[in-house]
Write a protein that binds this DNA or RNA. Structure first.
Lengths: 133, 133
DNA sequence: TTCTATGCAAAGACTTTGCATGCTG
DNA sequence: CAGCATGCAAAGTCTTTGCATAGAA
């Protein structure tokens, strides 16, 4: 994903592009993946960046609010950020903590439940936990 | 749920019944619900119990390991413990943080994805996030 | 007695916040 | 200049752990 593409994505989501936000976006958006704030910080630092921890957290919160990435609550100990925002589902490998995508066409719902009164649906996620055979 | 029933449930799951474990089980198992460790501590303390925070956490971890309750990772800030262990799914109200059960017959899966190589399925959970209309 | 559970406080992991500094429009 | 972003450290949550005491088998 090229620099101009990154800038475009940020602007589409009303995120002012700053050097740090561009760094985070370049890393996270370059492929479908699931990374925690700390993993992102480590990788950026490993690449020589001097971005601060607070900025990584702030940036990821901003990206999530603006719909640029999706926050996943699966691992009880930390949040993961998903670079793929269109509807899809996940495998969670409980032995390794790894998350992976379930190809969209591989699951399908037969019927939808009626929602609690006075509410509208925000999302629907399927999580399949797996472990080593 | 009567005292002898509670004791039976604990023994069925190889949990030695102690006064504190019985307290926690009586509170959590009395109806289908989703409570966090802190909510349980507060309620027990409110009822005059002097159980410690560590014991509540230890007990809930033990109950989960033994399959007596189910741990839910939905709210990024805390774990919830579900007194209903059979397969069922959840609504999560993002405005209030409330969790509720989706009646089992109200959802159905059309097809199951193939699992990652070398893994077996541990569970499948559907989470529907809703917000106020 | 021997093993396990409990309670307390301290430690730990992850995340957020306050505030001064620095950049951007 | 005004407003927002950044960095650092401190503070905050939730949870786990170490260790001494207490209880159960």
């Amino acid at each position: 994903m090229s620099r101009p593409e990154i800038l475009g994505r940020l602007r589409q989501h009303d995120v002012l592009p700053t050097p740090q936000r561009i760094e985070v976006a370049e890393l996270l958006l370059k492929k479908p993946q699931h990374l925690s704030a700390d993993q992102i910080l480590d990788q950026l630092r490993g690449n020589g960046s001097r971005i601060s921890k607070a900025t990584v957290y702030n940036t990821l919160n901003l990206f999530s609010e603006q719909g640029l990435v999706r926050q996943l609550n699966v691992d009880p100990s930390r949040k993961f950020y998903d670079s793929t925002t269109h509807v899809h589902h996940h495998f969670y490998h409980v032995d390794t903590g790894e998350l992976s995508d379930i190809p969209e066409h591989q699951v399908g719902l037969m019927k939808m439940p009626s929602l609690p009164a006075g509410t509208v649906q925000e999302s629907l996620e399927i999580l399949i936990k797996v472990r080593n055979k």
